[in-house]
Design a protein around this nucleic acid. Structure first.
Lengths: 334, 334
DNA sequence: ACATCAATAACAATCGATTGCAATAAAAAA
DNA sequence: TTTTTTATTGCAATCGATTGTTATTGATGT
């Protein structure tokens, strides 16, 4: 059996022109049903796959969506962070469903033009950026001229780029309120507010504390996002001898896990001595000891929103940012 | 400023032919240093990026490596599994370093031809498959005709495909031996031996038990790989009323985490009542309470091996499978 | 001043598929 | 039977870059 690689091969076998083959395989009405069936049969028989590169060159699309993870405010942060990974998996599923490939790229914004470089490379039809990190300005600048770009993260007034995320202020508020309701009057917030989303969560906390007349009782520890790095931060904090908080609002589930461990090593019971609540609602919360309370974001829905809006932007539509409702999930740690 | 998209635009600006531009930007010696510099300057000035699609079509390469995750023996398994994610991140780094993109695809082998379909799609220059699952036969069949394919996973006699992984038998042996040394005489193995690697780990356990004259004291619970699914398996097992094991060898760190939690809920102390050891050496082991002992595989090195060997296979070289040494990491759970 | 040779750059084919337009054949209308 | 219409298919340009071959230029030698 001759190996059939191109439509030209098929054309010869069928005794027609390449154009006809192309149309036939595309199911064009211009080609008679009979010829179409015959060509299709030949293609099937030889397991023919059209060359995607050539197709894309002609069509002027790549069929791939880039997923970028900017590691701005935290260069040590690893792509293996459970949150990224969860989101990545969901995006992979959603994109595959829509017939797009997922091009993964980890980016450390060393200079101002990291996003431009990717946008202009022409390797993808659109871009999903996971997390604004501290790069909101860059995102806004690029979004101004490059349409097919959506971002997972927070939303702020005057934001140019299109984002999908949960209401971080409300989430932070809910978390703090919950701990206050549990009787905590001194809280600590673990997380670095330089990142947009985390800053917003902190604002929410502050608001809840203020409402309870406890404004002065909130301390902030700008812990690292990565578990390995967060742990010593937290251990130091506990050792520092300040007044011990009765509740800890962690900016992410991963940080909360580190806190759980540090507290355990410190001989403090959760939730007996200290209440702990995380943020994100990752699957891993179910596996901690004790099981972690958290403010949950619906990442599945978020991923679908991201993909849906990106495709609409690719199609030329305009889209508004989406802010989803965060949800309190109470488990054993609070 | 006219927008410059193609080498043709640049050619006009420089007053030369497209061929000259192409060679100049490639740094060819065929073009005089002066012209080269002039063209390069123009390209820089306009931030010109050559069209990768066209380039690849001509060069006959795609510049992308596919990473496949077959979810064979466990359809519910999610791509967000910490092990996959860790490996994925490491691969992304290693591939980026070598100038390749990473095309992610999650695959549920519904039929026999899942791998063929991807191979023949021509979207990638090579393929890395993470985990053999129960698809060794498929992998062998395809590896026979498709060279640029490497697999993370176990190695067995007569294996056709090229794999990178740790010595699972030895790893299982080490784990069981460690618990036996700790004084356990009844062990349980948590994990489904249908997956190649897990089966090998179980074999290692059996060997260690046999050497200690405890062959009859090993029970096997084919727990799910996913944490959410594994937990009820384990809880049921503990409730079943059989003789309680003194030590648990988990086939993965994730399963071990579920075990820790189930044991805690059951009121059993670790390592006081039951010793637990995991497998993989993920970062998350450090964050559990108590910190998890494990058999560690050097995933960073593994990822580099995978990429290195794949590139060599793409270049036409032949490569042998790599079996790395697993390492016992003793923490607080054993 | 003329032939020789090297250096440089232009020309044109090529990668594989898509698609507007022209051409042919068959069917319908006159 | 001749003309018009319609249904199919072929032809060739195109996407943007790469590269083997050919042509031009200038320098060198005699």
């Amino acid at each position: 059996m001759v190996k059939v690689r191109t439509i030209k091969d098929i054309a010869e076998l069928a005794g027609v022109s390449t154009g006809t083959v192309s149309r036939a395989l595309a199911g064009s009405e211009l080609i008679s049903k009979k010829t179409r069936a015959r060509i299709q049969a030949i293609a099937d028989e030889h397991g023919f796959k059209p060359n995607i590169l050539a197709r894309n060159l002609r069509i002027q699309r790549t069929g791939a969506i880039g997923v970028l993870i900017p590691l701005g405010h935290e260069t040590g942060q690893h792509i293996s962070d459970p949150f990224f990974i969860t989101m990545l998996g969901l995006l992979a599923d959603a994109l595959t469903e829509k017939g797009y490939d997922l091009l993964l790229s980890r980016v450390i914004p060393t200079d101002e033009r990291w996003l431009e470089r990717f946008v202009d490379s022409g390797r993808v039809d659109g871009l999903i950026v996971i997390g604004q990190s501290d790069q909101s300005a860059t995102l806004d600048r690029v979004a101004d001229r490059y349409r097919p770009l959506v971002v997972w993260g927070g939303h702020y007034d005057g934001q140019v780029h299109c984002s999908v995320g949960s209401d971080n202020r409300k989430g932070g508020y809910i978390a703090a309120k919950h701990l206050i309701d549990r009787g905590c009057s001194r809280l600590a917030f673990f997380g670095d507010p330089k990142a947009l989303e985390i800053g917003q969560r902190l604002e929410g906390c502050r608001l809840a504390m203020a409402e309870a007349g406890l404004s002065d009782n909130l301390s902030v520890l700008p812990a690292h996002l990565v578990a390995e790095a967060a742990h010593p931060d937290i251990a130091n904090y506990l050792n520092s001898g300040g007044e011990r908080p009765q509740g800890i609002v962690a900016a992410s589930d991963v940080i909360a896990m580190s806190a759980l461990r540090a507290l355990s090593e410190f001989g403090l019971a959760v939730p007996g001595d200290v209440h702990v609540i995380g943020y994100d609602g990752l699957a891993i919360c179910e596996q901690t000891v004790p099981r972690l309370s958290t403010v949950s974001q619906d990442l599945t829905q978020g991923a679908h929103h991201l993909v849906d809006m990106l495709l609409r932007r690719i199609a030329g539509e305009d889209t508004q940012s989406v802010v989803m409702e965060p949800q309190l999930v109470v488990r054993m740690s609070s």
